[in-house]
Amino acid sequence: MTDPISDFLTRLRNASKARLDECIAPHSMLKENVASILKTEGYVADYSNGTDAQGHKTLVVKMKYVDGAPAITGLKRVSTPGRRLYYRYTEIPRVLNGLGIGILSTSKGLMKDADCRRNKAGGELICNVW
């Protein structure tokens, strides 16, 4: 697998469209931090760590639905392994005029776009969620 973050985002997108209760993905700290941001912003209900049948660590994300509709209506990977996109804090694009969030990898850790502007930290734009 060349892009595990893209795989994780695709699993989340597919689980929300299929209206599954939970989404299971291989664990990594970056994926856990993305799930943490999605939880604090209200896009997923909860996340936890688990293990699969072979003993590998997994990340279990409980999906959130509002009146039967998925809380995640759109999820797009922006920076890819073949095309990294870095932004200064003044140049970070707004997602749907502020209705969505962008997740950035900065020198201060993973942050949403509003926090990057507030803390004056730029970085690599990982994905947009709305």
Rank of each mutant, 00 (worst) to 15 (best):
Thr51Glu: 13
Gly109Gln: 06
Pro81His: 03
Thr80Asn: 05
Asp3Trp: 01
Thr10Phe: 03
Gly123Pro: 08
Val95Asp: 05
Lys112Tyr: 15
Pro4Tyr: 14
Glu41Lys: 14
His56Cys: 11
His56Val: 05
Pro70His: 04
Lys64Asn: 02
Arg83Val: 07
Asp113Lys: 11
Arg11Gln: 12
Ala18Gln: 10
Lys31Glu: 03
Gly55Phe: 10
Cys127Leu: 10
Thr90Ile: 13
Val34Trp: 00
Ile5Arg: 04
His56Ile: 05
Ile37Val: 15
Ala71Gln: 10
Tyr87Trp: 09
Gly55Met: 07
Asn119Leu: 13
Leu110Arg: 01
Thr106Asp: 08
Ile37Lys: 12
Tyr65Gln: 07
Lys112Phe: 14
Ala69Thr: 08
Tyr43His: 10
Gly50Met: 07
His56Phe: 11
Leu9Pro: 06
Tyr86Asn: 07
Arg83Asp: 01
Leu85Val: 14
Ala71Glu: 08
Ser105His: 00
Thr106Leu: 06
Gly109Met: 07
Arg84Leu: 09
Gly42Lys: 06
Arg117Val: 11
Tyr65Lys: 06
Ile126Trp: 00
Ala25Ser: 15
Lys31Met: 07
Asp52Cys: 11
Val44Ile: 15
Asn33Lys: 13
Leu96Met: 14
Thr51Cys: 09
Met111Ile: 05
Ala53Trp: 02
Asp7Lys: 04
Lys17Asn: 14
Gly102Ser: 13
Thr2Ile: 13
Ile126Gln: 00
Glu91Lys: 09
Ala15Tyr: 03
Pro81Ser: 04
Asn14Gly: 03
Lys57Tyr: 11
Met63Thr: 08
Val60Ser: 02
Cys23Ile: 03
Cys116Leu: 13
Leu9Ile: 11
Leu9Cys: 12
Glu41Gln: 15
Asn119His: 14
Glu124Met: 15
Ile24Ser: 08
Thr90Val: 13
Ile5Asn: 03
Cys23Leu: 07
Asn128Leu: 01
Asn33Asp: 10
Asp3Cys: 04
Asp113Asn: 10
Lys120Cys: 12
Arg83Tyr: 02
Lys17Gly: 05
Ile101Asp: 04
Gly102Val: 08
Ser79Cys: 05
Glu124Phe: 02
Ile5Lys: 04
Lys57Gln: 15
Ala18Trp: 00
Leu59Gln: 02
Asn49Leu: 15
Glu124Thr: 14
Thr73Glu: 14
Thr90Ser: 12
Tyr87Glu: 03
Ser36Asp: 12
Asn97Ala: 14
Ile37Tyr: 02
Leu104Gly: 03
Leu12Ser: 06
Thr90Pro: 03
Lys108Cys: 04
Asp46Tyr: 14
Met1Gly: 15
Ala71Trp: 03
Lys17Phe: 10
Gly98Thr: 08
Lys17Thr: 14
Asn97Pro: 00
Ile126Phe: 00
Arg11Trp: 04
Leu110Glu: 02
Thr106Phe: 06
Trp130Leu: 12
Gly55Asn: 10
Leu12Met: 11
Leu85Gly: 00
Lys108Ala: 12
Ile126Met: 03
Tyr43Met: 05
Ile101Arg: 07
Tyr86Lys: 08
Leu59Glu: 01
Met29Glu: 11
Lys39Leu: 12
Ala53His: 12
Gly123Glu: 05
Glu91Asp: 15
Pro70Gln: 10
Pro70Asn: 10
Lys17Ser: 14
Arg19Gly: 01
Tyr47Ile: 09
Val78Ala: 02
Arg13Gln: 11
Val78Arg: 09
Tyr43Ile: 05
Ser16Met: 03
Gly82Cys: 04
Ile101Gln: 09
Gly100Ala: 11
Lys39Cys: 12
Lys64Pro: 00
Ser28Met: 04
Lys120Tyr: 13
Arg77Gly: 07
Met29Leu: 09
Ala35Leu: 09
